[in-house]
Nucleic acid binder design. Structure first.
Length: 402
DNA sequence: AGGTATTCACATGAAACTATTCTCTGAGTTAGG
DNA sequence: TAACTCAGAGAATAGTTTCATGTGAATACCTGT
């Protein structure tokens, strides 16, 4: 019986008239062959990097802008074309792309260098060597290539946050010693303020040139969506105003194209599952809610236990009364700790944790003074109230409370 | 009534402590000559 | 014998606690009318 059920499910799945032609087009890993609405930026970056083809070192470059403005896409696009040309003309040019956010791969000085040396064909053990020896190995490997090396460091702010800016200083200085090769750095960051906090020398050497990616406006997002949609979906499945609605949703929030594309894909998936023949604006609404839900759950699940306890306390208090103050939260939290057998943190720390939740954006607070009855912080939830019961349940399960 | 002093309940800061993660060094191991 | 590996020492870092100080306004307490 069971077996038959599964078989028919798969058969259904095969016969099912999907709205998608190619879902991959709407995934963030997809590389379109042209990047829309970024002609100026492409030009500027291409101009900066072009000297590499004549075996001259391009200026270091700093690329910054909000998430989903096409920084990574544009940079990769140019890099691909550049290496295509260099291969064609047999020019010694090596372009390396590294995402510094990847944990345990490239998020410390040592690991980054080990990774780089590995890419140049010199394997380095994961631990055990002094850093300057790894530098040496990397240096030798690069020098042996006698090529121009363009090193693209995506999410470079993450690297700096963990490893300090010394690494950039060292990398830029390596050029003075290299005879046959040269290294150019391309840093990509969506944190626009981070470069201000760098050491002055590093700052000036990293951003010899910089390119700012402004957010897309609603019209540009519509254009991008239309193009992707035409490749991803069958003809005529998009209902009236769907693209416009998608674009409007994200234009409100800093023109994040990635989010717009996600929205469209999820809407398509929802419609598919329901066997609807077209995608309409209600699907977009649902997709928006689903993405929001996943975002919140992701955040919650990755928080440490103590954070989850604090959040659960806030939610519990909030569901009984409409005000939650630090003191109440802490009392509730302490009881929870007692129940679960965890050692409670001090009120000082819990106060900070509440602050951190505010930073993430799942609550907002304001400090109010209740006169004679002290001064405290009032917590307001930013989670849509429709998600509260589910959020609470997930926390309960994660903390194995009854 | 009007003014000011007090007081509460935490906010906010800084320093000190602690546990974990990184880096480095030397000893042991391996492999090539 | 040179290159590689690995465990353990010491350094760096993140997370927390301890101690200290700051804050805004409701209330208590004056003071003079």
């Amino acid at each position: 019986m069971e077996k038959k059920g599964i078989v028919s499910f798969f058969e259904d799945f095969l016969n099912n008239q999907s709205l998608f032609v190619d879902r991959n087009v709407l995934l963030s890993s997809y590389m379109p062959e042209t990047v829309k609405h970024r002609e100026k930026e492409i030009n500027k970056i291409a101009n900066i990097l072009a000297p590499a083809l004549k075996h001259q070192k391009p200026s270091n470059l700093f690329v910054y802008g909000n998430t989903g403005t096409g920084k990574t896409l544009t940079t990769k696009h140019i890099a691909d074309n550049l290496s295509l040309v260099s291969k064609d003309k047999k020019i010694a040019l090596k372009i390396i792309y590294i995402n510094c956010k990847l944990k345990r791969v490239a998020d410390t000085e040592y690991r980054l260098l080990a990774q780089l040396a590995g890419l140049f064909g010199k394997a380095i053990p994961v631990t055990g060597l002094p850093t300057d020896e790894v530098y040496r190995a990397f240096y030798d490997a690069v020098e042996r290539q006698s090529a121009i090396v363009i090193l693209i460091l995506d999410e470079i702010d993450q690297l700096i946050k963990r490893a300090g800016d010394g690494i950039l200083y060292n990398l830029t200085r390596i050029n003075e010693e290299l005879k046959n090769s040269k290294i150019s750095l391309v840093g990509i960051s969506n944190n626009t303020t981070f470069i201000e906090n760098l050491d002055v020398r590093v700052k000036s050497s990293l951003s010899e040139e910089d390119v700012l990616f402004a957010p897309y406006n609603a019209l540009e997002i519509q254009g991008i969506l239309r193009e992707r949609a035409s490749k991803a979906f069958k003809a005529n499945v998009l209902g009236q105003g769907v693209i416009e609605k998608c674009a409007a949703y994200v234009a409100r929030e800093y023109g994040d194209a990635r989010k717009a594309i996600d929205l469209l894909r999820v809407a398509g998936e929802i419609a598919d599952r329901r066997k609807d023949k077209t995608i309409n604006t209600e699907h977009i609404d649902e997709a928006e809610e689903k993405l929001e839900r996943e975002k919140i759950f992701d955040i919650i699940k990755t928080q440490p236990k103590q954070f989850q306890l604090v959040l659960f306390s806030i939610l519990s208090i909030k569901s009984n009364s409409n005000s939650a103050y630090t003191g109440e939260i802490y009392d509730f939290y302490k009881k929870l700790c007692f129940k679960t057998g965890l050692r409670p943190l001090t009120q000082r720390r819990v106060s900070d944790i509440i602050g951190e939740f505010e930073l993430i954006g799942i609550i907002s607070t304001r400090t109010i003074s209740k006169g004679r009855y002290g001064r405290t912080r009032e917590v307001v939830l930013s989670v849509p109230s429709s998600l509260l019961p589910l959020t609470k349940k997930i926390l309960e399960e994660g903390l194995s409370l009854t």
